[in-house]
Every structure is written in structure tokens, then in C-alpha cells.
Design a protein around this nucleic acid. Structure first.
Lengths: 191, 191
DNA sequence: TCTCCTATCTTTACAGTGTCAAGATGATTA
DNA sequence: TAATCATCTTGACACTGTAAAGATAGGAGA
């Protein structure tokens, strides 16, 4: 266990190492061999746990998404009413990625988002599900009735604003102040 | 000229070949050597025109951005009033990338957007400048007075909505209908 | 016309990459 | 104790970006 021929928990160690490397020098400088070396293991060892480099990347994305979900859920817990929940969730959404732009680039800056997100349905993406759920509660709390189409528009509007903000902040280097965020989200809810 | 030892206009040929490859099989399968082979030229020939693989990619991005700008400008020409201009520009923004998701991934799905976009200022990005300009005319046409901060918020709101929509459509496979777009953009303008 | 210059392209070489196949190792189980 | 099996190592392969050195051709100047 630990130091010997068998590693103990190499799978998780590889995932953690991969994320660490990404955070320190970006995804560009992430190679299977480096990840393996970081774990003091031969260059082909990862193939006992992952079919592909791609499969390791997917596992890393899942891990990052889990951390992301924790942050979002915490934001919900710390809010009292539905309005606050939506705004704080949006803020946390952007803040999380502004704090770790490499995470955004990693999650959304790749051709391979396909396997991770697509499945032709955004409803497989946990953060979106959480937004959807929170939005529903928002409607309920306010006693609002909306058509299915209106709901879709609201959700897409909320999501694309927040996600677009994160994207712009992370990918273009534009500074996003929280005043802006408050107002943008507020306006979407009020309109 | 053309077939001999010297190529004629290898630089542009490499750019075009690169874009073609990306459109057919995504950026993942783009290598300098393939681009060179596509132009019937040795694998090191590109280094006479580009310092780096990165420098070729930048040139390709510039080329794609130029096409993008043409589409946006055409949308402006074909609109009569300021409201129409803003909405049509937003539509074209999204449509352009929905039609060529590989372009979106190529332009915005990379760590190296830095060199292409950042320079710590979104004002270097031609499409944003066009949006800014169009928005200013919109204010003028309506005789609206806004503070600098309000303008910034409006612009960021417009941009992040549209860009976010494009991002979601291109990266997650969610279908974006134009009804949605009309309403989302309309709401932002009206509020 | 001849020579030289320079931009452009080729050849050769090297380190790094993902991946596969075959073998080694050691923990588990029969 | 012996056999099994997941896990790890070693070695090999094709492909990548890039650098250095040489070849080529077209134009400039004599």
C-alpha cells in the first residue's frame, strides 16, 4: 500500500494530478505521461484505469463539476428566499470560474465537450438541472404561472447570461464586476 | 509559378487548408504536417511563413473573424432602424456560429484566445466594437441618455446573452430557436 | 550575360506525445 | 501452497512540433 508496486488508489491520484497540472500550467501542457510521472508511475500505467487520454479528461471534468456543484449548492443554502437564491447562484456560477479560469477553459473550451455535456440534451448537465429546479421554486414562491415556452426562454436567458458572463470573463480577460452581475440578473428576473 | 519549387502564395494556402481541415474534422485533427501535406509541401515549409503552429492558428482565427465581421456588417446593412440592427446583429451572431460550430470552438474554445482576444481589453475585438457602435447609434436614435456604467452594463448584457447563446448552442448541442432569440434580445433592449 | 543574394522550400534530426503488446508483480482466492 | 487476476512496467511504434543545415530559384547588380 502506498509506495510499493501497486499504488493504492492510482485512479484518483491521476485525476487529482491532472487537475493540479491544469491549474498550474493550463490544459495545453497536460500529457498522460506527465500525469503518470507526477504519480511516480510508468507512462502506460494510466491505461489500467482509463481506456483513453479522453477518458481521464472526462473523469477530471466530472471531478471539477462536482466541486462546482458543491459551490452552487452552498450558495443556495446560504440564501433565504427564492430571489436571493437565483441571484446568489448566478453570482457563484461566475465567481467560481473567475476564480479558476482554467476550470472554465477545461470544461467548456474543448471540442470534446460532446461526451461530457451534449447527449443532445442540456438536462444531463447537473448545474443546469439545479438552475431549473431553483427557477421552478422561484415561480412557485411568487405564485407565477408561465407557459412551457416562457419558462424555457427564462431559463435559457438566465443560463446564457450567466454562462456568457463567465465565458467572457474567463476567455477574454474582461473584468466582470459584481455590480454588473447583480443588475443583469436582477433585470432578467424582474422583466 | 504555381507548381514549381516555389509555391506562389503558400501563406494563404496554408491558412485556407487549415480552415478546411478544421471544418471537416475539427481542430483536434489539425497538425502542421497535415496542413503542409495538404498544400503539397514539405512538413517544415510552414516555418518560412509562420514562427509557430500558434502563429498559423492566429492567422486562421483572423481569417475566420473577418468572415464573421462580413456577416455582421451585412446584417446591419439589411436592417432599416436601430432596433432592427441590434436584433439582426444578435441573430446573425448566433446563426453564424450555429451554422459553423467548429468556428466557435476554434475561436473561443482554446487557451490561446489570449493572444487573439485579450490584450486585457475587449475593445480590441472587432465584433464587439461593431456591437458597441451599433448600440451607441441605438441610443442616439431613441434620444436616450445613459451613464457610462449603464452603457457598460447594457453592452455586457447584450454581448454575454448573445455570446452565451452561441456558446451553449455550439458547445452543448442544445437547439436554439430564433423565437427565443428574438424575445431574449427584445427583452434586453426594452427593459 | 554572369554572379551573388535572399526568400522560400527540403532534408535530416530530435524530443515528446498517445497507444498497444508483452511481460512482471503481488494481492486475492481456491 | 498454487493459481488467478488486476495492476503496473518495459519496449516499441507512428505521429507531432520544431530546429539546423542545405538546396533551389528568381531577381538585383555588375
Amino acid at each position: 500500500m502506498g509506495d510499493g508496486y501497486h499504488h493504492g488508489n492510482l485512479r484518483q491520484a491521476l485525476i487529482d494530478a491532472g487537475i493540479k497540472i491544469i491549474n498550474e500550467s493550463g490544459e495545453g501542457s497536460l500529457s498522460l505521461r506527465k500525469v503518470a510521472a507526477f504519480c511516480n508511475v510508468s507512462h502506460a500505467a494510466p491505461y489500467s484505469h482509463f481506456k483513453d487520454k479522453e477518458e481521464l479528461l472526462e473523469a477530471m471534468k466530472k471531478s471539477v463539476t462536482d466541486s462546482f456543484m458543491e459551490v452552487l449548492e452552498k450558495a443556495l443554502e446560504e440564501s433565504s428566499n427564492a430571489d436571493e437564491k437565483l441571484v446568489n447562484m448566478g453570482k457563484s456560477y461566475v465567481t467560481f470560474f473567475v476564480k479558476n479560469p482554467d476550470y472554465f477553459k477545461f470544461l467548456f473550451g474543448n471540442q470534446n465537450i460532446t461526451a461530457h455535456l451534449q447527449s443532445d440534451n442540456k438536462d444531463d448537465y447537473p448545474p443546469f438541472l439545479l438552475l431549473k429546479d431553483t427557477y421552478k421554486k422561484y415561480l412557485k414562491e411568487h405564485g407565477l404561472k408561465k407557459t412551457k415556452e416562457e419558462k424555457e426562454i427564462d431559463l435559457l436567458s438566465l443560463w446564457s447570461s450567466v454562462h456568457g458572463l463567465a465565458s467572457i470573463a474567463c476567455m477574454s480577460g474582461v473584468e466582470v464586476s459584481f455590480d454588473w452581475e447583480d443588475k443583469i440578473l436582477g433585470d432578467i428576473l424582474i422583466r
